[in-house]
């Protein structure tokens, strides 16, 4: 079984079928029981059924933590950006507005910011986060680099994102075409301002494909 530090989160948003399984499973996580921390967003509801699952990308230099006036958001040694520390968070909402991926949420009544912590109770001991454990299309996958390479030979995981002039590097990887990653190993998010949803043909059960859940303790 791989060690926790060898395991990574891989998101292939365009594989998402919008089934909401991740949203429901997320509420089962012990660190935020009852509250779903994953966002399942329609990219353009009027013209397309395409959805995108958005988890915390766990930035190497988290903007949310830097702009937090209470110094409440901490990144643990394994690179996971945790929800705001409860004694400190003053629910100002700076993190909500600052996150380039739009992840954190403030719960006003409880005066706390909470967000995806990659199911820290599970991921920190090598178990698959709840959302990835139930995702039927593998838009959300948790495993080793070797496993994802075997599963998606035409794709490459990258973790650099461009927001205008700002480059953000994350602990979570996004899958892009391997040929493109070789030329441009980053995703320019801001450049998608005028983008419309594009279709992508993805058989959900490729013949002869390896079992994506093999070797991953659920």
């Amino acid at each position: 079984m791989p060690k926790p530090e060898q395991l990574h989160f891989f998101v292939d948003a365009s594989r998402c079928i919008g089934c909401q399984a991740c949203v429901q499973a997320c509420t089962e996580c012990d660190t935020h029981r009852g509250d779903s921390m994953i966002h399942l967003e329609f990219v353009d509801r009027a013209s397309s059924a395409q959805t995108v699952p958005v988890i915390c990308m766990h930035c190497e230099q988290p903007t949310c933590a830097e702009v937090c006036p209470a110094d409440a958001i901490k990144r643990t040694g394994d690179g996971v950006v945790q929800s705001a520390r409860k004694p400190r968070c003053i629910a100002c909402g700076n993190c909500v507005l600052a996150c380039p991926f739009g992840v954190p949420e403030v719960y006003e009544r409880r005066q706390i910011m909470m967000k995806c912590d990659m199911c820290y109770d599970r991921a920190s001991v090598g178990k698959t986060p709840m959302c990835a454990a139930v995702c039927p299309s593998q838009a959300l996958f948790f495993g080793t680099h070797e496993q994802i390479e075997q599963l998606r030979p035409r794709s490459s995981p990258i973790n650099r994102f461009q927001f205008g002039r700002q480059t953000i590097t994350t602990r979570v990887f996004t899958m892009v075409p391997a040929a493109r990653a070789a030329l441009q190993p980053w995703v320019d998010v801001a450049a998608a301002m005028d983008e419309t949803p594009r279709p992508r043909l993805i058989p959900l059960s490729p013949v002869g494909a390896a079992d994506p859940f093999a070797g991953v303790e659920v």
Partner: peptide, 11 residues
Amino acid sequence: RRALYGLAQGR
């Protein structure tokens, strides 16, 4: 921002 992340990856 969440939608843009999905659109950018799809792009």
